[in-house]
């Protein structure tokens, strides 16, 4: 007997849990109404309920089947790095503008996996930032602050 918590089982449980949580949340927070006058809760409960059932179905499928679907490994480092890069953008942009935000975004994202050295990373960031400013500000004429307070 192999590991019980296979990837298929994990995905089945994820679907089941999302479905159940959404069903309960919608059931308790929104009015169901009647069929004559359906309330805002009716449709979400139906859909989330179906999702729960599909989650059960997937669980059965995962238990019964003998062959595991093959999947790639979880790319942990790229995942974390890209997330941090976007967070940096979202936090820097409102304070300082497009240029520093894009520089941070690209420079951090370079750490996901790259043969480049620091100089190369800086170069890539600068080029991408210039593209961003030229394309969005100069060509498309989008009104976003490039460098807050300056341009």
């Amino acid at each position: 007997m192999k590991n019980v918590l296979t990837r298929d089982m994990a995905s089945a449980l994820l679907i089941f849990c999302i479905g159940l949580a959404a069903t309960l949340y919608a059931w308790t927070h929104y009015k169901l109404g009647s069929f004559r006058a359906p309330g805002p809760g009716l449709f979400p409960v139906v859909i989330a309920g179906l999702l729960t059932l599909v989650g059960l179905g997937l669980t059965v499928q995962a238990l019964v089947q003998k062959v595991q679907t093959e999947k790639p490994d979880f790319e942990f480092r790229p995942f974390v790095v890209i997330m941090i890069a976007i967070i940096a953008f979202a936090m820097i942009f409102p304070v300082a503008g497009v240029l520093p935000a894009v520089l941070a975004l690209t420079f951090i994202s370079c750490f996901a996996d790259t043969p480049l050295d620091t100089k190369g990373k800086i170069a890539v960031s600068c080029v991408v930032a210039v593209i961003a400013v030229v394309l969005f500000r100069l060509i498309l004429g989008v009104r976003l602050p490039v460098l807050t307070g300056v341009w």
């Binding site: 890209i82 997330m83 890069a85 976007i86 967070i87 953008f89 979202a90 942009f93 409102p94 497009v98 894009v102 975004l105 690209t106 994202s109 370079c110 996901a112 996996d113 790259t114 043969p115 480049l116 890539v124 960031s125 991408v128 930032a129 593209i131 961003a132 969005f136 498309l140 989008v142 976003l144």
Partner: peptide, 30 residues
């Protein structure tokens, strides 16, 4: 690809930002 993906990421984030004019949408992308 290591030269491409920072640019793609920038286009995604900037595109969403300019579409909605609202940085909250960047969090939604995240």
């Amino acid at each position: 690809f290591h030269l491409m993906y920072p640019a793609i990421l920038m286009f995604i984030v900037m595109g969403v930002l300019t579409t909605y004019n609202d940085e909250i949408q960047v969090w939604v992308v995240l």
